[in-house]
Design a protein around this nucleic acid. Structure first.
Lengths: 183, 183
DNA sequence: TCCATGTGAGACATATTTGTCTCATTCGGT
DNA sequence: ACCGAATGAGACAAATATGTCTCACATGGA
């Protein structure tokens, strides 16, 4: 009978990604529970968003762990990372645009840890001569987030097929739009 | 004495990009006018957002015109487009995440026109053998929007220098992160 | 100078959302 | 089958945002 907290969070993420101003009542309905029960789980809208943020951070870090960023080529590590992070992409897209989280001035330190790990991956690729050095690791990190968000958005709008999510993001991020000469 | 409508819209865009839930009072203060005057210009929050949307569409179409997408190589056209669109990037970033505009089901047809023109550019590049064909024009269009938004966001957060905005976006979109062999 | 128009400040009612509470019902374990 | 715990439905007040109105003030032109 216990409420499936994870299910509630995912429903909320899915809804809030589409409509960031959804009310607590709409969030509750989307999760198939009553507003009262939702409020028993999360003290308020703030607590709900914070919980979503924690979930997002946890999933990101799990993806980072699962992608084994230190192994093999940096390109392959990026591919693994995107693959691992795909299930959380919609949630990430919501949090990425929920800039209100940073209003307080101090953002959750979890994001800095994640930023650092991703940036370190790009830096490793640069040091290995694999990635170009005229694009900063900070920008590559930011671009990855942006493409993940765009990809999640495009999939949810039906503009890109879900099965192409990985390919599109990785290929654009790594290879760009310009056609390469055959090696 | 007449209120500078354009100034109000730009202030609103700048504020709402940072805090999408800002109240009408905050929007008014940001523009340096009173809530009453703001309300005389825009009947309500809805009307304000619609006006921002119209402004965004107009600036996008102006950028598309100014970039002369049909001339020269598709890559150069993309470079011109990003350069022309940069001043409107913050506004575009706001509108891009203001998905509530599409809640009604029918989005402003202006966006479809713009999407079509951008997608046509990528399609032209593909037909010319300049762009790879395994990334759909729809995705390239979406990715451009995402990178513009990420770039505007990164600049406003100080993570990327404003002067690098163009370079970073264009180079990543066209060339990707992987280093190319010297030709 | 005088008048008309636009503006700022604030009061006010309304609508919406939120947080809290109660109570009947239902579910699950013993 | 029974009992405790959790849930759903709804009432309620408080907080917040919005839309509307009035009135005093200032600004700019005739």
């Amino acid at each position: 009978m216990a409420v499936d907290r994870d299910h509630v969070l995912r429903s909320a993420a899915a809804l809030l990604t589409r409509k960031s101003t959804a009310t607590m009542d709409e969030v509750a309905k989307a999760a198939g529970i009553s507003r009262a029960t939702l409020h028993r789980q999360f003290a308020g809208r703030d607590a709900l968003v914070r919980a979503l943020e924690s979930l997002g951070i946890a999933e990101c870090e799990a993806a980072l762990d699962g992608a084994r960023l230190d192994e093999g080529s940096a390109s392959d590590a990026v591919r693994r990372l995107v693959r691992e992070i795909e299930p959380a992409a919609a949630l990430l897209a919501f949090l990425y645009t929920e800039n209100q989280l940073f209003e307080g001035g101090q953002q959750n330190e979890g994001w800095t840890r994640i930023d650092d790990r991703v940036a370190a991956l790009f830096r490793r690729g640069q040091a290995a001569g694999e990635f170009r050095i005229d694009l900063t690791p900070a920008w590559l990190t930011e671009a990855l987030y942006g493409l993940l968000a765009s990809g999640a958005w495009a999939v949810s709008e039906g503009r890109v097929a879900s099965k192409d999510f990985n390919f599109m993001i990785v290929e654009l991020l790594l290879g760009g739009a310009v056609r390469r000469e055959e090696p």
